[in-house]
Amino acid sequence: MTVAAGDETRSAREVEAAAARERRRERWWRWQHRAAPYLFISPFVILFCCFLLYPLCRSIVLSFYKTAGPRQMQYVGFGNYLFLFKDKLFLAAVANTTYFTVMFLTLQIPISLALAVILNSRRVKFRNFFRFAFFSSHLVGNVFVAVIFSMLLAQRHGLINKAIGLVLPFVGTELNWFAKPELAMPAVVFAALWISIGYAMIYFLAALQSVDRELYEAAQVDGANKWHQFWHITMPGIRPVLIFMILVGTIGSYQLFELPYVLFYGVWTNYAITIVMYLFQMGFEAGDIGYASAIGWMLVLIIFVVSLIQLRVTHVREEAAS
């Protein structure tokens, strides 16, 4: 009897313990269900605040100081910004970067679009191979491209000069890309085009494939030639991607740094100076991180204004078209 009673109480205790465990589990489950989103997002939010939001706000503050390294600071108000407009090197950097952006985009967009149109043609064989051939250069990092092109652009013996001598004998092989101010940015454009044409082509190819093929068939029935088809079907069809590519290309071009920096590393000229290069020079070679912050904010402003103008222009055209 006693044994049985003991058994009973023990099993009753066990049942209760199991129920308690179950309740705890239930509570834990409810808690993790409610807390989940906060737990999931918090690592990101913490790092986002520490390493993005804080430096962002701090750089506004810094841009009002003149500094020598991170330790010595002196408040100058808007002095940094005002000085930027008188700083010849900064103005040269802005002009250079703008020059690069215009030259780069006017070459990159048509060439990559033309390549995409050709590759999209059903008559072309080995399309996958060609697509990879054009895209592969994008895998090479900017720094490595700059290292390669510093050799390819060498005077007289460099591959590019040899090719120019072959194709355009009256120019010859003597172009010194690194020592002539008017050749500096074209040299950078060469390298930039090599990296990005295949990459842009992939975007255009994707856009071309989303254009409705029936439209072309209808146009053919109506007797439109290839040129008309391109302007009246293809261009409107890929318009969003085209605008996107121009915008992204502009923003990226204004942030140009690695290519000219490494190409002109050890040349010690400022022929290819860009805005970000100047920021780097002022902030980390001259040590004035306050002035560098001001340059950074001017870069923000320039990119903002240029993008706004571009969006405005394309929007106006859109309205005119409709």
């Binding site: 804080y54 430096p55 962002l56 902030g283 950074g296």
Partner: peptide, 16 residues
């Protein structure tokens, strides 16, 4: 923050 060019953060991140 996505619209901003990341280079603007360089000086203040260095200080941090």
């Amino acid at each position: 923050t996505m619209m901003l060019p990341s280079q603007v953060l360089l000086p203040s991140s260095y200080e941090l």
